[in-house]
Each structure stands twice: as structure tokens, then as C-alpha cells.
């Protein structure tokens, strides 16, 4: 099967320094692909380059066979990529429902929007009691639910999730991983960026380990778990 997303020899940097130097990766449809690495390895930069929030210096990015390297962000999103950004980034002065509606801003069919809202509220029943609450006044865990729900509202083909467990309680982190697995079961392809190696590899099908702007290990999750680099990264992050 062809890859849904393909990154080919990507160079991205700020000012003089390259943050990513020659990163290549493939995301297979219907699978969870994870991007592991310590803080500052370049994971978020890769995601930003993918979505054209940070300009690419060299290399190519393909989505479903179409080159998207230098397109505008909103045009890339239009192709069916949805993002749950790092730090949730819900719109603080919009209500829960309005936040969900921003996720479906490209969808014109009101019936579809309505049924997607229902679906999201079914996944996160806690949100249904707070439809009119301003997102900025909710707890971190609730904002995380809202951000995931907002990401699902566009019925994406690829869902990019950037550090979902950052700043959440262990209990909620576990809950989060369950939700991500259920997203995959809906047939949505997931690109998951994480520092939490063990739990991530448990749910991911494929993984890439990034260190200092380069892919240092990659492969199926089960195999990746055994490699030295991951062991090192795992114990490294444990400290």
C-alpha cells in the first residue's frame, strides 16, 4: 500500500543552525506511526515543517502522493491533515462547542457537523456537560479532551498528535493513549509525537527515533523497543 505521508531528506532550521538534517520517514495508512526523541531532538520542528508553519530548507514532503512542501498551511490542512498541537492550544475565549466548530470550519454541511459533534461528545462525555463553558476556564485534562475532539471534527485522513501527555496526570495520560488507540480503530491514520517511550511503543505500529535532528533508529514498534538507542533513550528519559 502506498504511504499516506512521506518525508524525504528534510532539512529545516532557524537562522544559521539546522534543526533537522536529512530526516526521512513514512507514515502508512491506517497505522499509528510514532516519533520518539528527547527534548530538543527536533520532533516539533518536523511537525511544524510538515504543516508549513516553519519553512523547509531542502527536501520534499508528500501527502497521498501529492507534494505539499511549500504550500500554505490552510491548503495542506484542506487535504485532510488535522493537528492536535503541543500544549493543546484550545481557543481560550471560545466555548467548548465553538472550539469544536473551529475544527470543522472547512465543512459546509451542517448535518455532518452536527453528527460529528455528537460523535465527539460520545467519546468525551465530560464535555457534554460543559458545552457553553469557555475553554480557557477548563482544567488541563479537559482541554486535552477538547483539543483531541477539535482535531477529530474535520474527519481527517491523518491526525498529527504532538506530545499529548505533556503536563497531564499519569491517570489521564493512560486515558489519552486509550483514546488514541480508538482513533486508529476508526480508520484514521495517526502520527504521534511523544517522549513517553514505553507507553507510546505499546500502541504504535511503527516508530522513528530522532536525536539531534537525525533519525537514529526506525522500524516496527516491537523491534524498535529492543534496539540499543531506544533502550538508551528510555533509560535516559527515566533519569
Amino acid at each position: 500500500m502506498p504511504n499516506l505521508l512521506e518525508v524525504d531528506d528534510l532539512y529545516v532550521g532557524y537562522d544559521e543552525a539546522d534543526v533537522l538534517s536529512g530526516v526521512s520517514l513514512k507514515v502508512k495508512p491506517g497505522k499509528i506511526t510514532c516519533l520518539l526523541g528527547a527534548n530538543g531532538a527536533g520532533k516539533t520542528t518536523l511537525i511544524r515543517a510538515l504543516l508549513a508553519l516553519t519553512p523547509t530548507r531542502q527536501g520534499k514532503i508528500f501527502f497521498d502522493g501529492e507534494e505539499i512542501t511549500h504550500q500554505a498551511t490552510h491548503n495542506i490542512v484542506r487535504l485532510g491533515i488535522s493537528t492536535i498541537p503541543e500544549g493543546r492550544r484550545v481557543f481560550p475565549k471560545l466555548t467548548v462547542i465553538e472550539n469544536l466548530l473551529t475544527g470543522a470550519i472547512l465543512e459546509k454541511n451542517k448535518r455532518k457537523i452536527g453528527s460529528r459533534i455528537e460523535e465527539v461528545l460520545k467519546i468525551f462525555p465530560q464535555l457534554s456537560d460543559r458545552k457553553k463553558q469557555l475553554a480557557g476556564t477548563m482544567s488541563g485534562g479537559e482541554q486535552a479532551m477538547l483539543s483531541i475532539g477539535r482535531g477529530l471534527m474535520s474527519a481527517p485522513r491523518l491526525l498529527v498528535i504532538d506530545e499529548p501527555s505533556l503536563g497531564l496526570s499519569p491517570l489521564f495520560v493512560k486515558e489519552n493513549f486509550k483514546v488514541i488507540r480508538s482513533i486508529k480503530e476508526r480508520g484514521i491514520t495517526v502520527l504521534l509525537v511523544e517522549q513517553n517511550v514505553k507507553q507510546t511503543l505499546e500502541i504504535a505500529d511503527y516508530g522513528y527515533l530522532i536525536a539531534q535532528g537525525k533519525v537514529v533508529a526506525s522500524g516496527a514498534s516491537a523491534e524498535l523497543n529492543k534496539t540499543d538507542q531506544v533502550q538508551l533513550a528510555y533509560f535516559g528519559s527515566k533519569q
Binding site: H74, V77, P92, T102, G103
Partner: peptide
Amino acid sequence: QAVAQDSETARLMGI
């Protein structure tokens, strides 16, 4: 409103 509150995230929504 979305652009006013967080223009980058607004772009990620396809705006």
C-alpha cells in the same frame, strides 16, 4: 475570533 485568539492554531484548523 480564532485568528484573534491564536492565529497559528487557527491556520492549523484550515483557516
